[in-house]
Nucleic acid binder design. Structure first.
Lengths: 234, 234
DNA sequence: CGGACGCTTCGGCGCTCACCGAAGTGTCCC
DNA sequence: GGGACACTTCGGTGAGCGCCGAAGCGTCCG
């Protein structure tokens, strides 16, 4: 009788991997794009190491994470940019009224709101400011979709930021920011820009989380290249 | 101890709504964009009416569906385009090796592969053909992201297809096709094009599912307006 | 008015699964 | 070699939840 969609079982199984709060905590933590050890995640999530070990095995088996064993450590990270995008999309659309509960969270939260990485690109007010500047200068087009313009392509070239145009990953993609609730630049261009910013010292990571801070050199560069006022970055 | 992300609980709760196969079957069925009654969905999913009633209540409470009571019927549909996009994204990235099991499914599957609606826009080979034609004529830009060009905006105007540019919904957005595994046009422009195609009789729905067929008039129009060869639509 | 019908509520059943601690395995380092 | 350490495996416990059928409630229609 049932004309069930063959995709349903897979969809449910996949969603079930995210449908546990402990695993959700891990996935959100891993959105910083780094590799975490099993122990770090266990402490972060507040569960026993044995419990977390099983969670990681499931997430790896489900293709959400990849693992790398080094001696007695088990490092895990998000499997790829598509998984990161999916988790970020889900998180952004969910719980819009999520507020920090503790002072420490509030402190970390405001640093995160200023600037952070979102898997492999810039987010927070910093990400928005860059995206808006690109748009305002006609390098990025948001009014009819989300794509770099020809001028935008040239801008990346003259700024010395290489774009790998092989592969299926889109050059530019919108990622919805969960603090600002506005789109910012992701995709190949977003990742390249973020990497360039960290490599050349425009930004540095602060703390152990994924928050980033713009340096003095970064302020100068962003002002010169994109006309971003330093006030917007503080 | 735990520095848990406040979004984790919400994320897990949300994913849990999709993490049940029966609910997943419903969500995939509702991707046709129409309103279904509780009874239709119960038969479709192959469970008791009482079971499905509780599932619907959860999905409505979770914001995935909206309901409308008419007499003794309870109509439900996907809450909005964002939810539809999320479900479609999840389904597209999951179970790439989903194959039909029965002859009937295979028959329905091939009609669906030719052309169908995906919530409110065209998908299947038809959707791909239209998207490729738009891209080939310089109306849509996919190489640097996904956005209409100025020529594309004009094309919609001269074709008499109105685009509502108020609201936050993006004008053009890529939706990954689960049969062709290639992007096709979604967003405001995709929805407007699909509505126009159905309104003017370029396409008609076949069967009770979301499959659509191109009419003779549709073949002429698509050939004239976009240079699409009729063979690609069969 | 009364029966058919669509949906909902309720009680009960059984399965899944997240959790822990204890014991075990492999790695690192003194 | 031996102890500290990171992780895994295993058994047991408890909670949550998906399922059904029976009973109840409202709607429709003859």
């Amino acid at each position: 009788m049932t004309t069930e969609d063959p995709r349903a079982a897979g969809l449910a199984r996949f969603a079930a991997l995210i449908a546990d709060e402990t695993r959700a905590v891990c996935l959100l933590a891993l959105l910083d794009g780094r590799a975490w050890t099993a122990g770090e995640l266990a402490r972060h999530a507040g569960v026993a190491a044995s419990t977390l070990s099983e969670h990681l095995s499931r997430l790896v088996a489900g293709g959400l994470l990849t693992e790398e064993r080094q001696g007695r450590h088990r490092y895990v990270r998000l499997a790829d940019a598509r998984i990161a995008q999916l988790v970020e999309d889900l998180a952004a659309r969910v719980a819009p009224g999520a507020r920090p509960r503790t002072l420490r969270q509030a402190g970390a939260g405001s640093a995160m709101a200023r600037g952070r990485t979102c898997y492999d690109h810039l987010a927070g007010r910093l990400g928005i400011a860059v995206t808006d500047a690109l748009t305002g200068r006609g390098l990025l087009r948001q009014d009819t979709g989300f794509a770099l313009t020809d001028a935008g392509l040239r801008w990346f070239g003259t700024a010395g930021i290489g774009l790998d145009r092989r592969g299926r990953r889109p050059l530019a993609r919108a990622c919805l920011d969960w603090t600002e609730r506005r789109p910012h630049l992701a995709g190949v261009a977003g990742a390249a820009l973020c990497r360039h910013a960290l490599d050349t010292g425009w930004c540095v990571r602060i703390g152990t989380e994924r928050a980033v801070k713009v340096t003095a050199a970064g302020e100068r560069a962003l002002s010169e290249l994109l006309g971003i006022e330093a006030e917007k970055l503080r």
